[in-house]
Every structure is written in C-alpha cells, then in structure tokens.
Nucleic acid binder design. Structure first.
Ligand code: SF4
Ligand code: SF4
Lengths: 152, 152
DNA sequence: TTAATATCCGACTGCATTAGTCTTGCTTCC
DNA sequence: GGAAGCAAGACTAATGCAGTCGGATATTAA
C-alpha cells in the first residue's frame, strides 16, 4: 500500500547527489547512476523528466550535465514525486477522474480527500536539503518539517 | 503515486457502513455490496480478510453476516489498510526486504523511513468513527486527528 | 432432515502499471 | 568533425491489482 515508485525513489537520490555536488558544477546522468548503481538509461530519463518539470537545469555537450534549478531547500519532495509519478493520488477518484464508477454512492470520498491533502502537506514540508545530513537529524530539518494537522 | 488499492477503499466503505448499521445487527456481505454497488464477491473476500485480521466478527448461516469487532472509534484507518494491502510501505526496501539491491549505496533510505512513519501515524489517527459524519467536520474528529510532526 | 442463507478458501484470468532497454537524433564544446 | 552529453519515443518483461469462478462448510428456519 501507498508504495512510492522506484523512479521517484531514484529521482530523490539523484537530487540529493546533485545538491551535495552543487559546487562541482554540472554532473552527468552517468555520474549519478554510477554513484548509486542505478540503471543509467533509466536514470537518464528520470532526470530528463525532472528537467522538463523545471526542477533541474540541463546542459548538453561535453562537460555538460544536470544541476539544481533552485537551492536545495526550495525543492520539496512533493514536487519531485509529482513530477515523476504524475499527479495521481491515494484514491482512484481524485485525479484519475473517470476510473471509479462509485462517485454517486461513495460516502468516503470526501474524508479521503482530506487525508490526501494531509499527506501532500507532509511531503511538501520535506525538502531535498533535509536529506543530505548523513546520520543525525539536522537542526534545519526539525524546523523545516513543521506540523501537519489533520481534521476531517 | 502513493495510490491506495481499491480493496482498501472498499474495506473502509464497508466498515463505515457496518458502523452505521451497528444497531441493526449483522449485515451480510451482499447487503453491503448492494448498498455501494461494489462487486459482491470481491467485497466478500475483503470482509473475510478483515474478519481474519480481527477487525470484524463473522457469523455464518441465515441472518448471519459481519459486525464490527470493536467500537468504531477504536478501529484506525491504518489497521484497515494494513490488514487488506499487507504491511508494505512507501519504499520497496522497508518491508519487501530483498527487493532493492541498493541497500548499501542508498543514502536516502533512512529519511524515507521517517516519512513512512509519519504517514503511518497520520493514518493511525483516523478512525472509522471519523468517517460517518455526512458533511461537516465532527467535533470528535478534530480531537481525534491530533498532530503529526515530522522531523528527519 | 432439508433447504436456504451465508461465510470461507484457493485458484484463475485480464488488465494496468512499473521497471528497464534500445534506438535514434540533437546540441555543445574542443 | 568528433566526442560527450542531453532528448525523446517506442518497445518488452515482469509485477501487482481488480474481479471472477467453483466449491466447501457452517448455521438456522421450516
Ligand atoms: S470508492 Fe469512493 S473514494 Fe474510492 S475511488 Fe471510488 S469514489 Fe473515490
Ligand atoms: S533506493 Fe534506497 S530507499 Fe529506495 S527502495 Fe532501494 S534502499 Fe530503499
């Protein structure tokens, strides 16, 4: 349940890597793939998607590659996931639109939308800068996390 | 991304229905299925699963059916989802165990586990009793929801 | 006792999504 | 011009989900 796709997973890893290597200029897709042992061609497409979504800037040619389009603390995990996996959410009805034929009878739809929003907010409160701390909690993360309240 | 399975969806609807009809005694799987236009045989299996998980009590025979094993406010959405969809979570590594071959190199695993826990807590704060209010937020729900803080 | 009602259980199929690959073309720098 | 790199789309294999089918067992009412 609620499984994140591996692509989004890879995307987050790549973004983290790019955030760490921000000083060293652009990094090629191959570099990132080798650093984490991710299938290179797959990661390439993920990075392309991320670039198209405006989260990365790309530069073709020799010594080209990808770099963050914004500072790491301005890119939320929610944006990344949405860019890669698309805008689909926990219930089939919210975004798939016509998939569920129970729109009339379903009485649980509204509450679930609230849950959906809560998760969305939770993910929006996480930034790639929060991922780079190696082991112990960074003081920034505690601040950035914030609080998510849920009231149905 | 993060899509809830329809089975879990149906399960929540059924539980809500059973909570509402708690006074009328046991309800058969067919009754619930007809009330919401859910494929009867599919719902039957979901209810069986729920019963096996201890969330429902079942009674075979004429005038038999299912009823809540506990009061509605003691059954969390998390339990329901877990019972139906199994214990899998947002990343492939957390519960699938051997699926991801990046355990060594992956540096993003720990932060994601925290996110995972936050979502789990969020879902644990929602009970089926919070779903029965038709339109406006129930006062109980605001209390029951609580706060979920996330700190990486 | 019999028949109707209902849960229980496992196997099965069709479909959608996901993970990953291949191929081809375009851009930039040297 | 050629190497390094991005861009883009088609393609395949595998997985998981939604839903179905068939039959077995338990309970109750007549
Ligand atoms: S059953 Fe209700 S909540 Fe679930 S997908 Fe259909 S309309 Fe949405
Ligand atoms: S890439 Fe990392 S976080 Fe994702 S499944 Fe593999 S080990 Fe877990």
């Amino acid at each position: 349940m609620l499984r994140l796709t591996k692509k989004a997973d890879y995307g987050l890893m790549a973004l983290k890597y790019l955030a760490e290597q921000a000083d060293s200029g652009a990094q090629s897709a191959k570099d990132v793939a080798e650093a984490y042992h991710i299938p290179p061609q797959l990661l390439a497409k993920i990075l392309q998607t991320l670039a198209k979504a405006g989260l990365l800037v790309s530069h073709a040619g020799t010594n080209g590659g990808y770099a963050l389009a914004r500072p790491a603390q301005d890119i939320s995990a929610f944006e990344v996931i949405r860019a890669i996996d698309g805008p689909l959410f926990i219930t089939s009805c919210i975004t798939i639109h016509g998939t569920c034929d129970l729109h009339g009878t379903c009485t649980i739809k509204e509450p679930l939308r609230k849950v959906n929003d809560s998760i969305k907010e939770l993910l929006s409160g996480i930034h790639v800068s929060d991922l780079i701390e190696p082991a112990e909690a960074s003081p920034a993360a505690a601040l950035a996390g914030g609080l998510v309240s849920i009231a149905l």
